[in-house]
Design a protein around this nucleic acid. Structure first.
Lengths: 107, 107
DNA sequence: GTCTACATGTAGGCTCTCTATATGTAGCCA
DNA sequence: TGGCTACATATAGAGAGCCTACATGTAGAC
């Protein structure tokens, strides 16, 4: 997967994966790998800064927890984040429609 | 259309649009706008450098022409570019499949 | 005692797209 | 004559975000 292709879609992926259950960074990476059937293996250097950015933007909220002696920062979707995710899904649909039409014109 | 979303897909768009007929930069911008139903309005500052990059990469070849007193640099797809475009189309299909699966898991 | 899995984080680089600007021709209109 | 719009190409610099590489630490297995 070409890294640049993810540009501008990472937010939607991250928000989507914590939609129904709060997860910490490491678990988010694993969830992305699982949901994508192994195609998405996003490095920590991408995910952690992105999560902080999304929290700053108000789309995520986090709190620390200690599980099995290890510290985790668990992120959950805020109301604002839920709205953002809905918007991202709509944008994704129109995005694929537009690009798809250009790549394979039904002429 | 969020500019970042185009990242990594611009090449495919540009190659696709000159697949069946050579076009010059200005015409390429118009073709993208038409094919996308007006959704894609790519600025010249994006297209011209991108075309040169694709030519340097060997995917496009260009030659100058003068039409109606105006100079045009017309780009055509090379054999290498044709192969690249095919690869980009395959990549696009798997890309949309992967992201789509993460955004809307059929769980 | 070492290795792997778990877990978070930052610094710096890289690349691409965008905005803004520059340059010039052709044609229309007042 | 002057101004406006469409046509046509090009570059400089900014901005953003994803990546590589590195740093740090715990827990458990062998």
């Amino acid at each position: 997967m070409n890294p640049d292709a993810l540009r501008g879609h990472m937010d939607a992926l991250l928000l989507s994966v914590v939609e129904h259950e709060p997860l910490h960074g490491y678990a988010i990476i694993e969830a992305l790998r699982e949901r994508s059937g192994g195609a998405l293996d996003v490095p920590t250097g991408t995910v952690y800064p992105a999560l902080r950015r999304l929290e700053r933007a108000g789309f995520l909220a986090s709190e620390w927890a200690t599980v099995g002696g290890r510290k985790r920062r668990t992120y959950r979707l805020t109301e604002s984040g839920r709205a953002e995710l809905a918007g991202e899904r709509t944008a994704w649909t129109s995005f694929t429609s537009v690009i798809g039409r250009v790549l394979d014109p039904q002429t």
